[in-house]
Amino acid sequence: MAVSIMHRVSGHGLAVVGLALLAWWLIAAATSDEAYAIFQEFATSWMGRIVWVGLSWLAFQHLLSGVRHLWLDAGFGYDSRAAQRSALAVFVGAVVMAGLFWAVRWGL
């Protein structure tokens, strides 16, 4: 149940914050150096960094729980132990994938 609730929560986080920031990033790059500098000032601030890390985690969480939903839609994984295992795998997998993403991006 928690994974299903988090699917909705992460989806709305991506909807409201993620897509708005994606549009801001692209339009700033398309506009001018000044416009991009304003975006970068936010993006490289502590606030911005927290937002990027949070968004990446939400993105992987939503991606994995979305795949799980499609799998359930197709009629698989309904037995209660399998459903609990896949729910746990979604939570762990999202954290691991977000961690790997930033480890590669920051060259750790």
Binding site: A23, L26, I27, A29, A30, T31
Partner: peptide, 13 residues
């Protein structure tokens, strides 16, 4: 609005 801004930006670039 988000789709229009994003698509316009991608196409302009």
């Amino acid at each position: 609005g988000v789709a229009a801004v994003g698509l316009f930006a991608v196409l302009k670039i």
